[in-house]
Every structure is written in C-alpha cells, then in structure tokens.
Design a protein around this nucleic acid. Sequence first.
RNA 1: GCGCCGUUGGUGAAGUGGUUAACACGCUAGUUUGUGGCACUAGUAUGCAUGAGUUCGAUUCUCAUACGACGCCCCA
Length: 461
Amino acid sequence: MIKRQKGCNDIYGKEAKVWKYIDQVIDALMEKYNYNYIRTPIIEATELFHRGVGETTDIVTKESYDFEDKGGRKITLRPEGTAGVVRSFIENKMYGDPTQPVKVYYNGTMYRYERPQSGRDRELTQFGMEILGSDDPLSDAEIISAAVNLYKILGLKEIKVNLNTLGDNESRNNYREALIKHFKPHIKDFCEDCRERLEKNPLRILDCKVDKDNEILKNAPKTLDYLNEDSQKRFDKVKEYLDIMQIDYEINPSIVRGLDYYNHTVFEIEAKVEGFGSNNVIGAGGRYNGLVNQLDGPETPCVGFATGIGRVAMALELEKINLPINNSIDLFLMYVNEDEKKYAAYLTQELRLSGFIVDTEYTDRSLKAQFKQADRLNAKFTCVLNSEDLDNNEVKIKNNKTKEEEIISLDALLYYLDEKINTEFSDEYDYCDCEDDCNCHHDHEEKHECCGKHHCHKEEE
RNA sequence: GCGCCGUUGGUGAAGUGGUUAACACGCUAGUUUGUGGCACUAGUAUGCAUGAGUUCGAUUCUCAUACGACGCCCCA
C-alpha cells in the first residue's frame, strides 16, 4: 500500500470542515481589515531562503526541502510565507503602487524537513498577513489586533499575547553584547546547548528550557533596558495603540527572534489549553525592516504575522469550541422500486436546484438500511417515495426530529420544506447544555462533540 | 540529526513460541408480507507494519527498515 509521506496529513471528514470554516473566517476578517489575498508559488529559488546570513544557514540546509529540478535549478519548497511575499513585492515593484502601504495575506502550504512531533508536521498550512511600507507603530498594533481578533472570532478564549521589542539595530546590538558579557563568566554552569548559543545566538539562551531556573538567567539584562530613546518611544506607541484597541498583552522579555532582519516589535501568541504539546505557540510575528533591503529591494519597513492552521484547529478542539458547521442535510429520499428511483432522480435534481441539501440512495439497499443512512447523514427530513402516493401527486414526508409524518402534495413540497427548516431547525447548533445520557430506548442518540454525552432529539421536545 | 515508546479486521482493542486470534462497537442480512432505531439470529482478519534471523514451529523472541506518538536540537 502506498502511504502518505512522513509528517504529511490527509485532512478530511469533520476535520476538513473545521479547516474550511477557519479559512472562511480568515477571508471574511481580512476583507474587513482591507488586506488583499496574495498567492505566491510553493517552490522558490533556494537562495531566497538561503541567504547565508548568520543563523539561517544552519536552518535552511538542515530543515528545508531542497532539491534540484531536471534543469539543474536549485529549488526549495517554501518553509514560510514571508520571503515569497517579499520577493513578489520586489519583483512586481509593489513599492511603486499608488496605494501604500501594501497590505496582503496568504494562506497556504509550507514544508519543513523536520522530525514530526506534536503540532509540527513536514507539511503545514499557514495563514499570514503582512504590511509592507509602513514604519508606523499603528501598523504593528493593527497586525497584533488582527491576529487576536481572528482567534477571538473563531471562539478561542485561552490565548495570551506575549509582546516584546528588540529595538532598532543599535539597541539590538548593544543588547546582544550585554548578554554575552553577562553570561560569559558563568557559561560553564549552563547546558551544553546554551554554551553553543553564547556566541551564535545569545538571545536564545533566554528561553532555554533546561536552564530556565538558573539565577544567572533570571537576572539577565532585559531588552527593554537597552532600548535607545527612539526605540523606547516607538514601543510605547505600539502599547498605547493596543490599549486603545483593548487588546490584552503581556510584556515578555524572553520573546526574541534570532534573524538579523528583525527589529522592534516581536510577539508570540500562546494557546493556554491543557493538552498542547511542548510548544503551545499558535502564532507569531514581528517587524522585519531589514528583509526587503536584504533581498535587493528598496529600504522598506514591514511587519507581519503568521499562524499555523493545524495548531489553531488543535486549539479549537482542545477548548471544545462548538463551531457553526453544518453537519446535516435537509432531506434524504428513499425508494424501493425502479419507478420510485426514477422519481427520486427527478426530485433530487429539482430540490437541489431550489437550494436544498438533498441526498438519496445509491446502493439499492433495504429500506431499513436506507433509514440508517438517513440518520447517519443527520437528515432533517426523510421521505420514502411510494408509487401510490406519487400517482396521487403526493409524498409522505417525515420530520426526523419530531418523528411526525405528513402527506403533502408535490406542489407544496418546496414551500413546506422551506418553512419547516426555518422554523423548527433554526437553533440547529444550540444544543450544548445536555448533562446526562437520556434514558429513552431510541437509538437515534448522537454523541455530543462539546460534552461527549449523548443527546436525544426526542427527549429535548 | 539525537532520545523514548509504539504498530493486531472498518473502529476501539485483548492475547499466545504450537490445532479455528478474544470481546465490544460498527457494518450487512434475516425474524418484520414496503417504514429504521429496541430485541434476537447469522455473516463480517487464511490475518497480527515490512524484511531478515533464532527455532521443528514466530503474530509472540532478536535485529534492521518504514511509519506513528512524544520529547530534544531547531523553530524562518
């Protein structure tokens, strides 16, 4: 049997509905924020990600999907979205567009050649948004607010924004020097990894899991103490705008970015739910004023954010958020003989074109089995087509919730369904409060997604 | 790249160096002459990830590989 590739997942069934819902929320939100959708290729030239700048070299060679195509071109499957967007920004000279800044969002597949673990796959889907061409602190605040609002609209409650600033290049470099100076005399007390980090990436020592209780680490200098006046003012502005927008955040000096095109605002958003793996960050972002220039574009200040759809879906599941996802169909049509089947073919066509969600039988099963199928599909109404009724221009239709049956004329069917669905099924998703398994002997109970209990429609009446 | 644990039908899983691999759910059919759900009955893995080894004999023991889960590194 051919199996899927390591660290890659098939998203289908209920999970696919959740993903689709998330996508819809993203699109609707981005429209309100007036961001334009952008699609860039999944394959890019390796050097886009392989700029050989300090720490990146190690990352790219070890953890990205690099290969040569048949023409000998060096190709990399994009490991993140920002670089492609920036490449596109430069290549298409978007910096010349009359509308500035350029606000775009993407939502697509990324690839990282890593060992899979909780919340980390080789193929992942990320939504991200970028503002290119603005250095205004308001744009930092807008990105953070949009991120928080996305999570809120989806229904997540247990999220936390960790905010920090690296300051401008001067502040950043001063801080880096101060850190090395602080840790160097005591580095022998730190773990092996931290000893490596000292010269390579001293900022990373700050969020080391092994040494997190080390006094030297706790007393380490904070970025905030090394901000020059401009950087401090800028950070204050970002916080001020966030306060005005009523976005909660916490200053967390251990939030850092290793790559040197980052400066000023950095933030991470955590899901504070039980059950997340070792890494509960569901989204992160920051300002990267150095990147456009580094990729041979004009000096352009940018800020952005990205979140993994898989992790968001995981957070929604762990928080047991009941999403407004339609899991039912309006009508299931049943039949036994060929004449009735022909009528079913006609009627499904008719009803679907009128806007109803309709399904029918395709495997010539027994009526009993067809009823089971109707239940599995959560049909609001069932209808067994009967030759006699049809001769009289009538159908017998059954409300699967109340179990009431009615014989109605075919002419009235559309109106009847429309009316009933709007009145009797309008509170479709609102059944979260059941406490106990119902004791009735009907087998039409269904397990609740939210509470894991059983739920019986009849009992609810 | 490193570490730890795992892999048995459609699903959840039990189990053993040796005839027919539990049990449950699900599914299909019947009892029910065209109306499901309850009940009862029957059917539902020549198969225990793959390959090699030990053995008279391996799903069971050993090793390797693949995949999965979790953690480390790293996290753009």
